[in-house]
Design a protein around this nucleic acid. Sequence first.
DNA 1: CGAGTGATTGACTTAGATCAATGACCGTGG
DNA 2: CCACGGTCATTGATCTAAGTCAATCACTCG
Lengths: 202, 202
Amino acid sequence: MDKKDWLPAAVRRSAAERTLAAGQTLFNQGEPTVGLYEVVSGKIRHVRMDAEGREILVSIACPGDTIAEASLFVPVYQCEATAVTTAIVRLYKRASLLAEFERDPALARAFMSMLAHQILDLRIRLERRSMHSARDRVRHYLAARAGSEGRTVALPSTVKDLAAELGLTHEALYRTLADMSADGEIARLDGKIQFPAGRDDI
Amino acid sequence: MDKKDWLPAAVRRSAAERTLAAGQTLFNQGEPTVGLYEVVSGKIRHVRMDAEGREILVSIACPGDTIAEASLFVPVYQCEATAVTTAIVRLYKRASLLAEFERDPALARAFMSMLAHQILDLRIRLERRSMHSARDRVRHYLAARAGSEGRTVALPSTVKDLAAELGLTHEALYRTLADMSADGEIARLDGKIQFPAGRDDI
DNA sequence: CGAGTGATTGACTTAGATCAATGACCGTGG
DNA sequence: CCACGGTCATTGATCTAAGTCAATCACTCG
């Protein structure tokens, strides 16, 4: 969306680009941080490993998104990033970015703004997990991404990934989606979900 | 915890405190932003209205938390905040805070760092919610707050609140805690939980 | 063409949500 | 000072939604 707007062209030009093949790893959890990345093309899967070695989906970064912003302030990457498709990323080195912030307060402010919006987004996602019913989580998800008049929501990648995002097993999500379709609450077409009427019954 | 450390005492002293009665509104969605708030005492409910006018719970802010960080960067509040209990908040005016950042890049960096750490913390909490078993969530929670050698964790407030943080009903948490005690995995004393051995099986 | 993965559905089981009740412990106002 | 209302802590019984195991089909990729 407007995620990339915070970076002025001058800074962007100075960054190194790197091309990744599908499945290739950008960085691993625990590696020393180099800086933050911006996705130029393709999709990057961003996961965290928990103590048992299971992976937790953090996000799917699309062109324009940045990943590992927090890494500017911590010594090692907290997540692992791998390319889903062939992808091009741009690396902004930590030291130079921090220096840039010092030089240009407006840029610093834009960066803060981006972080603040991410916090808001994460809180909304966390709140979604407080709902115990699968259907409610799906509704909450749809409501959160149905901007203004958008009645159609595109799945970021696969349904399995959406299941991880919602904290459900993929089977449970398939069933919930099927039930909601059957009830006419949503309609599915290709990789999209649309919900016809603004239901406001109790 | 360290959420408030980024603010130097001088700035903090300049902030105005305000007392809210239970149920009183701090700000409404769509109102022009004044600045960001820090919760001094009590609890603040933070909700967003979706396109259909349903409310989406964003968070419950507790003492030490800040709310509406994003409001520093947008013209109107995106959320609505109301006091759940009697509460005291501290207001940091947008203009003065931003001016302070411009004047003092170190402060700006500290603020960014705080935001980045909040993001990390939120991600860990989100990760916890991806675990399906109540016991695993409790273990994860304990592991996350047992710094280095600390084998004793104090509950932040009530067990009910912990249940909400873990995304469980309070009954489920009571039972899980009871089971874990019975199995000798943890011991409970007053408002604290201690877990004897650093289990690293698997 | 076969391996690998996503999408989907079925059958079965269980962990946790729900509903409900009790005792302990406030603070408060008559 | 004590009865009363409120909330937390705890445990019991029941039920169901979602997890688990499993199988099939479609599709892509090398």
